[in-house]
Amino acid sequence: MSRALTWRAVLVWAALAALPALPFMSKFYLLLAFDALLFGAIAMSLDLLMGYTGLVSFGHAAFFGLGAYATAVLLERGIVSLWVCLLFAVLVVGLYALVVSYFSTARRGIYFALLTLIFAEVVYTFFRYTQTFGGSDGIQGLPAPSLAPGFAIDTPLRNYYLVLVYLGLAYLVCRILVTAHFGRVLVAIRENEDRARFLGYNVQRYKMAVCMISALITGLGGALYPGRSAFATPDLMLWTVSGELIIMVMIGGLGTLVGPVIGGAFFVLLQEKVSSYVDWYFIVIGLVLIFIVLFMPRGLLGIRGLLGGRRWRATA
């Protein structure tokens, strides 16, 4: 990583950390910023699959929702330690992801997408119709999780910093993975799976590994959600959420990590702004997305290229 890039990274983090100090940052905007960063991080984890490995998952909402339910179930029973919640989420999401990734990666192309979708729909239906988990209402009115006894994450500000740390760690993990040999193999698989196989790579194992990592990052993001919203509902796992995550990656820029974070934040902010003016906000969002896909095929991050900046390498 060049010195300039490191400095830019420090600047970006400093700006994000200082964001709550801005005068107009009300609680409402802090929660909006929480959502923007949370979905940015989740879109980034999906980029490991979509951008680097060439696998399109239509079932990431299930990882997100399961993480949220894992936390919600514990909070509901009075277990408020954030660490226990996160650990439980890792277990639940990890087990589910193991099954999904095993079966999904056994098939290629559209079948991978379909299998992830079908698994996610099963999970959605299960939570939607199981009264133990509140059925369609989900689990509501949850207490705030605490970082340590007596230190609850109970304000938008604390939630914001929590998600900022989560984004930072998730970014580090993803960046290290894609710059390591592991990342090269993922790109090789994306470019030509058969070639990777006859070079001696157990392609399915690599695909499973990257699926699991992506699912766990997404699940951990989900586990942070009830702390901000005080609920977990089946709607979090609706297939449209998976679709939105894919859109976030696309508009941000495939295979760049940073792009999807921007894409996720952009999507959340756009949705919030437009929906506060009109009910048919999805039409407006759709038009904006069509514009981006048609005129900025490299995504929002591609603007840098248009402005003469350094072009982001899709594989690095």
């Binding site: 470019e191 030509n192 196989r197 006859f198 070079l199 001696g200 157990n202 899709a314």
Partner: peptide
């Protein structure tokens, strides 16, 4: 045996039309 296992036994394959990884 799967292709990756055969490769690891010491069998190399040079496919037709020079199939390298273009983006790497």
């Amino acid at each position: 045996r799967a292709p990756h296992e055969i490769a690891r036994l010491g069998v190399g394959f040079v496919p037709e039309n020079r199939r390298i990884f273009p983006g790497l």
